[in-house]
């Protein structure tokens, strides 16, 4: 059981300066407040470029982003003071929009190494193999996946399934899902959503679901919906807010926040 608390979070990204005419760091997040309590599922929706992925990466600790103000805590522990791997071991998980290829490292080796790191001890071989096989079957992944290199040559859908497979096996306290629905056909969307729902069914897990479309919310029901515009939360509500966005789009927000 853990509460993720984000307070007044300001984040800049190094834009590379001279290349695009801008100079130095650019502020992407401009004061984000969000609390995810155990068992809650929050959806963050917003137009492209509003800073949704930056929020996800900042929570995970991607080196490209710099927190200039605010705090992120997990059950009171200062997440921002932790290294990337420490955050994961503290109970955070990020399902990435663009999972990274790691040539030559097999999925099975990767999963076992990650599980060992998270638990602080190697999983019992026999139960672990069974757990992996069960989880892979649930994600409708061929067992041959275990011998392939991490994300190498995976289709978009396979990468997303692999992310949710990790979610189930590593079983974090709070999961951040960054556009996990993008690029999925309807069958894969269902498989992935089922996986997230199994994770949720553990009862006290937190989910932060970042998405551009309402489609995935038909399968994963959020408790709260936040509309993210220009680096901060512009509106909050229940699941009905998603329906309204579906009907009206983001124009209402983007035109008033220029």
């Amino acid at each position: 059981m853990a509460t993720l608390e984000i307070r007044d979070l300001h984040v800049t990204v190094d834009t590379g300066g001279a290349h695009d005419g801008s100079d130095g760091p650019k502020e992407i997040l401009k004061g984000v407040d969000l609390v995810i309590r155990p068992g809650e599922t929050h959806a963050i929706m917003g137009p492209n470029g509003s800073g949704k992925s930056t929020l996800a990466y900042s929570i995970a600790g991607h080196p490209k982003y710099t927190v200039t103000r605010g705090s992120v805590t997990l059950d009171g522990a200062d997440v921002l003071a932790m290294k990337v791997d420490e955050r994961a071991r503290a109970g955070l998980f990020l399902a990435m929009q663009y999972p990274v290829e790691v040539p030559g490292v097999s999925v099975s080796n990767f999963l076992r190494t990650a599980k060992t790191a998270i638990d602080g001890e190697a999983p019992k071989l026999r139960t672990w193999v069974k757990d992996v096989n069960t989880a892979m079957a649930a994600m409708k992944m061929d067992p041959a996946f275990a011998t392939r290199s991490v994300n190498e040559g995976f289709s978009g859908g396979e990468k997303k399934r692999h992310e949710i497979l990790q979610l189930e096996l590593l079983d974090p306290q709070v999961a951040v899902l960054d556009e996990t629905d993008s690029g999925l056909d309807i069958d894969a969307l269902r498989v992935v959503s089922d996986g997230v729902n199994r994770f949720k069914a553990n009862g006290d897990r937190g989910v932060l679901l970042i998405t551009h479309y309402t489609r995935i919310l038909r399968y994963i029901t959020p408790d709260f919906v936040h509309v993210f515009v220009d680096g901060r939360i512009a509106e909050e509500g229940g699941p009905e807010l998603a329906d309204r966005l579906e009907a009206e789009g983001y124009d209402r927000f983007t035109t008033t926040t220029v």
């Binding site: 995970a60 600790g61 991607h62 080196p63 290294k83 990337v84 791997d85 955050r87 994961a88 071991r89 998980f93 990020l94 990435m96 999972p99 990274v100 790691v102 490292v105 080796n109 990767f110 190494t113 990650a114 790191a117 998270i118 991490v150 990790q166 590593l170």
Partner: peptide
């Protein structure tokens, strides 16, 4: 970053 985000220590990530 990907490996570390799964809890794998930096040294182990480099080894991998």
């Amino acid at each position: 970053f990907y490996l570390q985000s799964r809890g794998i220590h930096e040294d182990d990530a480099r080894r991998l």
